[in-house]
Structure formats: structure tokens, C-alpha cells
């Protein structure tokens, strides 16, 4: 095992796949010579050169369109959209093009590409550089949606995404780039569509994603220490395909479900999961299923305001305590 930061795991995952597959190339704004504005792709340009690691103009439509055209005709491109908020300016390619071309052509067109993007809040960047938009992506049939919470998952799920035959939107959380964690040595490839129980427990289930996973674990630890409440935490890891088996078996065991979501309230991914659980596991529930989310507001820039907007360890802790007591 090696200790890597989350951002180092990004570069490690890309490098691993570029080494084994010549058709993998990487494009984006400031990703090559500068190593990315979040320094998540440092070293790739030096290692693979300007043919395979390419700085592009600020042209998000051209970036995703070019990646798509290349993927349709035999490459496995990785395209970076610097901040996930910017996906709004090239959303056509996600919502209308890469997600639908296979279906509309009845399988003639393929689109094996990865769109990597910096997602999420906590950096005091304000409303246009801080959003969690994984729920936008989840709403579109035909794409896969990944959002890892640990360096090991970054490397393994990124590798799996690059090898996947479908278009994958890969959300990297900006506030996790600096965290460190164990990453398996050598080739590491994970499996899309698999959630993970990251903290076993018996009294309640928290389902969380990305930055909300470490916060949920901390809240669960505190609930155990302070009140002996034993909470299980499930890291969803990929929203599409969604591993309902892991989520359902946890809820069936604990009888309680909490989702912790960074996306704003309406139509957040937790709503979908709660709805499935209510449909399919209603009689296993011992109480209401509860969503803990960012309120339905644009994100503020000021640190004190942003901190009370996105679910915090304290908010998760207090809400669960309130509901269970």
C-alpha cells in the first residue's frame, strides 16, 4: 500500500490507464503544462508528452464534442471540465449527445469516454464554482455517474471508468483533493456500480457520497461515543449504476435510513434512494427516512455562510440524534 493524496490518485489512475492503452488521451484547460488548476494531473504531460496530454482553449463544447467524436471513432479520451459548474455551458453534450447517440443509432455509435470534473463546495468560491451537480447527471439515461470519496476509490474507479464502454461523468470533490489515504500498489481497478459499507453499524444507515462520506463517518463515530448509537455508513461511490442491493441490505438490517447530500434539496439523489426504499422496504423501516441536504439556495461565498449551508458533521449528528431520540 502506498499513501497518496486524492489528487495524486487522479494522476496515478490516468497514468496507469495511459500506460496500458495507447488510445487513452487526456484533454482540458490547463491540464497539461500546468498540471491542472487543482494540481490533480501533475506529471502526466512530462510522462506522456503533448500528443496525449493536451492543453485546450476555454471551449467546453469543443472539449466534450472532440472527446465524443474521438470516442465514437476508436479512442478512449478523458476530458476535464475544470469546475463542474461549467458543465452547464456544454451540457448539450452530456444531456443530448453522448448519453443518447448509442440509443438513437440503435447501437451503431459508441462513446467510451470519461468527463472528469471538480465538484462540490467548501472552497469559498461562491455560487458558480462550488456546486454539487451529480444529481443533474443522475437524471440522464445513458451515462454513468461516479463520485469517489477516497484516494483508493479515485484511482480504482477512474481506471474502471476509462475502461468502461459507456460515457462516465467522474466527479472529483474539490475539498477532498488534499486528503491522504492508502492506495493499493500496482494495477488497481475497481468496479462501477458497487457501493461500500465504510462503517458497519446496526442502529441506522447513512447513505452518503463524496465529501459527505467522511463527514458521515465522523458523525457516526460521535453518535457512538456520546450516545452508543451504532450507525452504518454506506458510500454510494457510483450513482449510476446504483448499487441498491448494498443500500437495501443495510437498511433492512438497521431499519432506519438517512441520506446525506451536498446537492441542493430538490430532486437530489437522496430523493430517488428514499423513494426506492419506501417502495421496496417500507415494512423494514422503523421510522421515517430522512434526507439531510444543502438547502435549496445558491451557495454563498462567505466561509461562515458556506459552512452552515453544506451538511456538516454537527448537522448530521444533531439531525440523526433528533430523529432517533
Amino acid at each position: 500500500m502506498a499513501q497518496l493524496t486524492y489528487r495524486e490518485a487522479v494522476a496515478a489512475g490516468i497514468a496507469q490507464e495511459m500506460e496500458r492503452d495507447e488510445t487513452v488521451a487526456f484533454i482540458g484547460e490547463d491540464v497539461a503544462r500546468a498540471g491542472g488548476v487543482f494540481k490533480a494531473t501533475v506529471g502526466l504531460f512530462d510522462k506522456f508528452g503533448p500528443k496525449r496530454v493536451i492543453d485546450t482553449p476555454i471551449s467546453e463544447q469543443a472539449i466534450l464534442g472532440a472527446a465524443m467524436g474521438a470516442a465514437m471513432t476508436g479512442m478512449r479520451p478523458i476530458a476535464e471540465i475544470m469546475f463542474s459548474d461549467f458543465l452547464a455551458v456544454c451540457w448539450d453534450f452530456v444531456a443530448n449527445e453522448m448519453s443518447k447517440s448509442r440509443y438513437m443509432s440503435d447501437g451503431q455509435l459508441k462513446c467510451p469516454l470519461v468527463v472528469r470534473t471538480g465538484n462540490g463546495g467548501g472552497s469559498r468560491f461562491g455560487a458558480q464554482h462550488s456546486q454539487s451537480i451529480e444529481n443533474w447527471a443522475m437524471a440522464i439515461p445513458g451515462i454513468k455517474v461516479v463520485a469517489p470519496s477516497t484516494p483508493a476509490d479515485v484511482k480504482g474507479l477512474l481506471a474502471a471508468s476509462i475502461r468502461d464502454e459507456d460515457p462516465v461523468i467522474f466527479f472529483e470533490h474539490k475539498s477532498l483533493y488534499a486528503i491522504k489515504g492508502e492506495v493499493p500498489e500496482g494495477e488497481h481497478v475497481d468496479t462501477l456500480g458497487t457501493a461500500k459499507v465504510v462503517r458497519p453499524g446496526k442502529d441506522a444507515t447513512i447513505v452518503a457520497l463524496a465529501l459527505m462520506v467522511p463527514r458521515a463517518i465522523q458523525a457516526a463515530d460521535k453518535l457512538m461515543t456520546d450516545h452508543g448509537i451504532d450507525v452504518e455508513v454506506v458510500d454510494i461511490r457510483t450513482l449510476v449504476p446504483l448499487d441498491m442491493k448494498t443500500i437495501s441490505s443495510s437498511v433492512a438490517k438497521t431499519g432506519r435510513l438517512f441520506t446525506v447530500e451536498e446537492n441542493p434539496r430538490l430532486c437530489g439523489w437522496g430523493a430517488e434512494i428514499v423513494s426506492i426504499v419506501v417502495d421496496e422496504l417500507f415494512w423494514d423501516l422503523d421510522g421515517p427516512a430522512v434526507r439531510i441536504t444543502t438547502p435549496h439556495i445558491p451557495l454563498p461565498a462567505a466561509d461562515n455562510l458556506e459552512d452552515i449551508t453544506i451538511p456538516s458533521v454537527d448537522r448530521i449528528y444533531s439531525k440523526i440524534l433528533d430523529v432517533l431520540r
Partner: peptide, 28 residues
């Protein structure tokens, strides 16, 4: 669409297929 004849699709959102053609050219 008829990929067997090199027709890589017809696109109904104005402009979208221009970057795609660029991508195909990048691959070439």
C-alpha cells in the same frame, strides 16, 4: 446514422456535431 458507410450520425441540436467532427479528425 449508418456507420458502415461512414455516416457518424445526424444531429438535431444546432452546432453540436461540429466539435464531434473535430474529435473524429483528432482521432485520425
Amino acid at each position: 446514422t449508418d456507420t458502415s458507410k461512414g455516416v457518424m450520425g445526424s444531429y438535431a441540436i444546432i452546432g453540436a456535431h461540429l466539435p464531434m467532427a473535430v474529435g473524429s479528425a483528432w482521432r485520425a
